[in-house]
Design a binder for these strands. Sequence first.
RNA 1: GCCUCCGUAGCUCAGUGGAUAGAGCAACUGUCUUCUAAACAGUAGGUCGGGAGUUCGAUUCUCUCCGGGGGCGCCA
Length: 588
Amino acid sequence: MHIAARCARMRPSAPGREIDLIVLPAAHARLVEQALAAAVAAGNLPAGERPAVDIRPAARPELGDYASAIALRLARPLRRKPLEIANTIAGHLPPAPFLASVDVAPPGFLNFRLDETWLCAQIDAMLQEGDTLAQLDNGNGRRALVEFVSANPTGPLHIGRSRGAIVGDTLARLLQACGYKVEREYYFNNAGRQMQMLGESLRIRYLQALGRQVDLPEEDFYQGDYLVQQARLLREEQGEALLSAAGRDYQRFAEAQMFAGIRSTLERIDIRHDRFFNEHSLYENGALEDVLDRLQARDQLYQAAEWEGASEEEKNRAAGRAPASWFRASRFGIDKDHVLMRSDGTPTYTLPDIAYHADKLARAYDLTVNILGADHYVQHQVVRAALDALGEDTSRLRVVILQFVRLMQGGVERKMSTRRGDYETLDDLIDETGPDAVRYLLLARSADARLDFDLDLAVAQNNDNPVYYIQNAHVRCAGILRRAEAAGIDDTVGDLSLLGDNERCFLRKALELPAVIEQSVTELEPHRIAFYAHDLAGIFHPLYENVRVLGEDVPPELAAARLRFYRAAQLVFRRVLTLMGMSAPETM
RNA sequence: GCCUCCGUAGCUCAGUGGAUAGAGCAACUGUCUUCUAAACAGUAGGUCGGGAGUUCGAUUCUCUCCGGGGGCGCCA
């Protein structure tokens, strides 16, 4: 996929201002397309199928601002020399306000240079955009669903779920920035044995809280001390009134507490779901039977004690067992068939999962994204295969598989044991490091890479910590604006052409934001925004040292121009931080 | 064994079918009386795991081997 192939357009400018926003490098790509068409029309290039025009920021600044290797790629299909093609394109390139020059470099690169006056004028364009800076309309109001977290309410969110929470929510924010109408959904199950055991565990903790001599069995019971606290709460609120209560009452209480806890934990990192989809509702509305009937009708289901491809040994072992219902997943490239209905007539996890995704698809979102841990890979393959078997269109269903998180402290892994119940919760992590550090550090890694969450780094208040490095850029802008306001500097009059190379370098990077957002969304790679933010701060801080607003040696005209620049820079940082769900502090 | 992800600087990781592969940290040398030093300037650091293939061009794509994570349940 080439960025340039997806021509992004800014939303229409607000009335009353004359500045049109141009998204780079998509605008370059359009120029090149026009040049190619003109060259073909003039008979200077043969017509025919062409690869998409690729434009990217230039590898080295001395070459230009943007570069394209399109002539090299066209050499084969057009049967011409790359250099000749590049020259032809350059010769037919229409003029554009943002374009100062185009050079052809061997063996056939096109190097574009931005018009510096235009570049500096983008400061006003940015200020005009305000908090919706780089808002794209690619999505054009299409609907997207992002499902993430989806932990059952059996305990507090732990570190393993945190990554999906951050990635899912950030992706949702980026989709919104791309013009999608986004819904955030949380899928959960509050029925079944797990929840029963949760209720039972709470009942025992409650008895213990009342001083009764009861042991909590290790097997199957929830050991976490969050239940001890809940039990204490119950005792304080109810005294001994619940001694005769049914297990169901405990379960209901535990569930309500858990969900309240999960939601408030998520809110601490600024995450709110629009819908909590209860798996159990699929049991009640006939969705499960519907899936089974449809699969049966398509000969994708059979009843047997063991799957058809099993070894003789496995089949012998299963002999005499009541038959289960198997989905023919092996027909879809999966290594074996999967059980949807157990021998005892109860559904497996997979069946409602299929029904849930069928429900999602029926809701006809233009894009449906699922954020999953690596351990769910096969499960998702089976669900997708089942949907294919049902004849559903699974092309709108996309999934982000996240590798695991390891908690590191003092250079060694901090082990978590769910069985003992002393695992690291997301709440603990936020307590220790703060919401911004949690969000940034869990975002700033590609989904494919295992993430080592470095606790020492997260709490570090020094330049090792990228969180503060980025936020400090915003703080520094805010500081300048505060001081300048106090000094009575009016930045509406400054001549932006007085700005220097440092500022222009920053502006070039700032203009990449729309493309970064766009690419994050099309590739479902929200980590890109995190790296972009760090890069942007890396250009900002050196500049800050040299580009002063206040000071006797800065002429008023220049001070005003620089102040306007810093106002725009602050806006960019605030926008980027907001897209990552982080705060943009005025002071630190 | 099968599926999947990873292997890039001492460490943690970006990136990419194109021009001289990047950043942070660590190491070393410097910089605050000046808008926040949670910062900046500089030095050093690489057979992009090995091999083969496709290509005008491969770190990027394909195959294979090696090493590591995760998954392979009538759990969720």
